[in-house]
Amino acid sequence: MSEFDVEFIDRSEDDRDARFVVRGVTPAFANGIRRAMIADVPTLSIDELRVIENSSVMFDEMIGLRLGLVPLTTPPGEFEEGETVTLALDVQGPATAYSGDLVSADGMVAPADENVPIIDLKESQRLELEAEAVLDHGKTHAKHQGGVAVGYRHLQTVEVVGDLGEFADDDPQILRGVIEEDGELVPTEEFGNDLRNRYPGKEVRVEDVPGAFVFDVETDGSMSAPELVLEAVDSLYARADELEEAVQL
């Protein structure tokens, strides 16, 4: 197992967003991590309902879909694939049923966002149901995806190759991502994504740093971004071990 060098660029307070540089990985492995974050890390999500009473304006199936999309906190390693957790919802109108009204039978599992409106209930309408959340992969259904808008770019360097000619075109030099400057990481937003602002009057050449990738990770709240990345890497190693075992004579 090789070591990777990881350096954070920014990280949100709630740990749901993170941007970091990974060095010493191949493009194939970087893409493997990205794909694993989207499709391979299992999360809990409501999959089945037992509706006791639904006199709202929405059909049971529509309520079921909305509840399924609500992210549930999933502590990594605590649940087996296919394991279920029961949640209950009971709201009497006039009121709005929120995701935060879901009551979980397991203390580790709770709606990650509490202000998602499920359905507006009028006078004498009522929604009462029990729901089974199941642990499954993003491959099965997008509601089980832990990562939202996960991506990566090459880390780039900017090299000054000379001065611009006196009558050279003043075209914008747009660059998005993160550049490395004398070992320092500079997000391009700092200079308005335009290299002209950072190197006025200079001719520059942009190059990729080999083996260095800037990951942008955002989770839906089911786990923190660092947990998601670690789970994704673990799942890659687990699959590699599985392959090794399968091909041995």
């Binding site: 304006v57 929405m58 909305r66 999309l69 609500v70 992210p71 995701s99 990650a112 966002d113 202000n115 998602v116 409106p117 499920i118 359905i119 507006d120 997008a142 995806q145 939202v148 808008a149 955002e218 839906d220 709240g221």
Partner: peptide, 21 residues
């Protein structure tokens, strides 16, 4: 009818912000 729970394209939970918005 009700605000969609997630963004259709990327899957971010947007319903969370609807009432404040």
């Amino acid at each position: 009818m009700m605000i969609p729970v997630r963004c259709f394209t990327c899957g971010k939970v947007v319903g969370e912000h609807w009432e404040e918005f």
